[in-house]
Design a protein around this nucleic acid. Structure first.
Length: 294
DNA sequence: TAGTTGCCTTCGAG
DNA sequence: ACTCGAAGGCAAC
């Protein structure tokens, strides 16, 4: 099937799937292969056209976030030269609508790891506890269910290379099984209430909560502060903070909750309701500038 | 060569 | 409220 794009709806599929927001897509013979819940599918972009198989058009448009009006978002977040440069460099980068359960567990795993390591962990997890589903002669693995992760022993989770994260995964799964969190309902809640709720889960701090909200619960104003975004903010936006504050957090390698919240509040108020897009563009921009793999 | 640093942080003790 | 250290393991330097 095909989907035609135009100037009012730009897309850069490669940047979208490579930028580190989502971990289980891989490219083969110019196609991207991945899975959403129980449905494996593939897609590729040729100029202004997206070709895809095994899902329908409305799902694909939703999944890729094509409903977000990028030209309008660029006008809103393009407040100064640095962010405009970032936008120019990876124009068409979209924020994907991930499956919330997979996204939550993925970002609990992502703490204190680099992207290749995160991908390794998640693939191990899916291979040992997910369900194989054939597609084009290859096996695709579903993400392990809530029940599967809740009943698996921590020691077995550790075999997937999760390290200390294994305990958080198993406790979070058990907690959700008991309390019955409903992700669709969560999408209706406002940013503050939702964040508070997510922070109750083991292994979920402010950064993980912001990622889950941005990448799977449709909170475009969420503004996750990781090491790269912290660097960007101190580099290009230090004028917006007291000198003492900047000097203090430059000299150390972790943030207190108060410091996190300060950077986070700045991002949200400065960039507005689509601050999450600004975050993703700045993140990608800064990473690709200093690294060769991306 | 072997050691160090860094990685999309969180948690708990003091 | 803040500081500090621990918690896999791997790859880059």
């Amino acid at each position: 099937m095909k989907l035609q794009l135009d100037n009012s709806c730009p897309l850069n599929l490669d940047a979208t799937l490579c930028c580190g927001q989502i971990f289980r897509w891989h490219r083969q013979d110019k196609w991207w292969y991945g899975i959403f819940k129980n449905t494996p599918f593939k897609m590729r972009q040729i100029a202004d056209r997206v070709e895809f198989e095994n899902v329908d058009t409305s799902f694909l448009a939703y999944y890729l976030g094509l409903g977000d009006n990028l030209p309008k978002i660029y006008r809103q977040i393009g407040k100064e030269a640095n962010i405009r440069k970032a936008i120019k460099q990876c124009a068409g980068l979209r924020i994907v609508h991930q499956d919330p359960w997979e996204c939550l567990i993925s970002y609990i795993c992502a703490t204190y790891k680099n992207i290749p390591a995160i991908e390794r962990m998640l693939n191990n997890l899916c291979k040992s506890l997910g369900e194989p589903i054939p597609f084009e002669g290859k096996k695709f693995y579903t993400f392990p269910t809530l029940e599967a992760l809740a009943r698996t022993r921590t020691s077995d989770l550790k075999k997937c290379g999760l390290g200390y994260r294994a305990k958080y995964i198993s406790e979070t799964a058990k907690k959700i099984l008991e309390t019955g969190i409903n992700f669709d309902q969560m999408k209706q809640e406002d940013y503050g209430a939702l964040k508070k709720e997510l922070l109750l889960l083991p292994g979920v701090g402010p950064k993980v909560a912001d990622c889950v909200m941005l990448f799977s619960l449709e909170k475009t104003e969420a503004f996750p502060i990781d090491v790269w975004v912290r660097r960007v903010l101190l580099k290009y936006y230090s004028d917006h903070f007291p000198v003492k504050f900047v000097r203090n957090i430059i000299s150390k390698n972790s943030l207190t909750t108060a410091e996190y919240n300060r950077l986070n509040s700045f991002g949200r108020s400065y960039f507005g309701e689509y601050a999450g897009y600004a975050q993703q563009y700045l993140y990608h921009y800064e990473r690709t500038k200093t690294m060769k793999n991306a």
